[in-house]
Design a protein around this nucleic acid. Structure first.
Length: 250
DNA sequence: AAACCGTACAACCGCCACACC
DNA sequence: AGGTGTGGCGGTTGTACGGTT
């Protein structure tokens, strides 16, 4: 016996939402809150699939959505997070307040992806497209062994902090499936040692902080002068292995 | 002015994970 | 332990819109 459909498709609207539908959905959620998307359409008087209502609310109607163009800081963060997480849009969105997974996914596919390709960078591997295969031993973080979202979050934070070269890293203990094949290379340009510059000004947040790991072991905000030991270098973002700061983003 | 093309983004679809029974 | 319902996620599609020819 197959699964029952999520809604009665014959009696549901599809396509673009009307203003009236939006108003109904907003009014209902304001009155009753989110939850039970399956029964929501009927209760709210909407001829829509529950899934469609959820998507519309999460991606468009939610009051805390930022909307508008992505900033340079957001661009950089998305690229860095994607290099760490891959197409885990919901996780990436979780680190960008006011942005949705759908929005970020679209932005990636329409803007960032093309930009990286035009620079000769593979948007999937975050490596130079013509880079020899032998040198493509990249940092890959697998979440296959992370059974819960919380564990995955721990692994992300662990990844942020994994720059230290100590042996027997606690990261491995917490996340046994975490592949920490790190690529460690010396800085190849002086610029890489300068503080992170974004949009023509200097950002005061290190990558660890931008990921919500303030005051963690990998946080380098409080280090004076050189940031050569900061926590986000595990991707080579500062060493010059990957340096997206030179990229122009619209 | 019209046709064509590329881009951006909202929305849909199918699958998966989890909770509950 | 297995079946079922639901929510959530990622990939893909559809379409409106602006630019170009």
């Amino acid at each position: 016996m197959g699964r029952s459909p999520c809604c009665e498709k014959a009696h549901t609207n599809k396509g673009a939402w009307t203003k009236e539908e939006d108003d109904r959905l907003i009014a209902y959620i304001r009155a009753h809150g989110e939850g039970c998307w399956r029964s929501l359409p009927k209760a709210a008087g909407l001829l829509r699939c529950g899934k469609s209502c959820r998507l519309r609310w999460i991606n468009y109607l939610r009051p805390d959505l930022k909307r508008g163009n992505f900033t340079e800081e957001e661009d950089e963060l998305i690229i860095k997070l994607h290099s760490l997480l891959g197409n885990k849009w919901s996780l990436i969105a979780g680190r960008l307040p006011g942005r949705t997974d759908n929005e970020i996914k679209n932005y990636w596919n329409t803007h960032i992806r093309r930009k990286l390709l035009s620079r000769g960078i593979d948007p999937t591997t975050h490596r130079a497209i013509n880079e020899p295969a032998a040198s493509r031993e990249v940092t890959t973080i697998s979440f296959a062994g992370s059974t819960t979202k919380e564990e995955t979050e721990k692994c992300i934070t662990a990844g942020i902090n994994s720059n230290n070269k100590e042996e027997n890293s606690p990261v491995s203990e917490r996340c046994p499936d975490l592949n920490l094949e790190l690529r460690i290379s010396p800085p190849y340009q002086q610029q890489a040692l300068e503080p992170l510059k974004t949009g023509g000004r200097t950002s005061s947040l290190c990558f660890a902080c931008s990921l919500g790991a303030q005051n963690s072991k990998g946080c380098s905000c409080n280090e004076s002068g050189s940031s050569s030991n900061s926590g986000y270098d595990f991707l080579g973002l500062k060493t010059g292995v990957l340096d997206y700061r030179s990229l122009e983003m619209k």
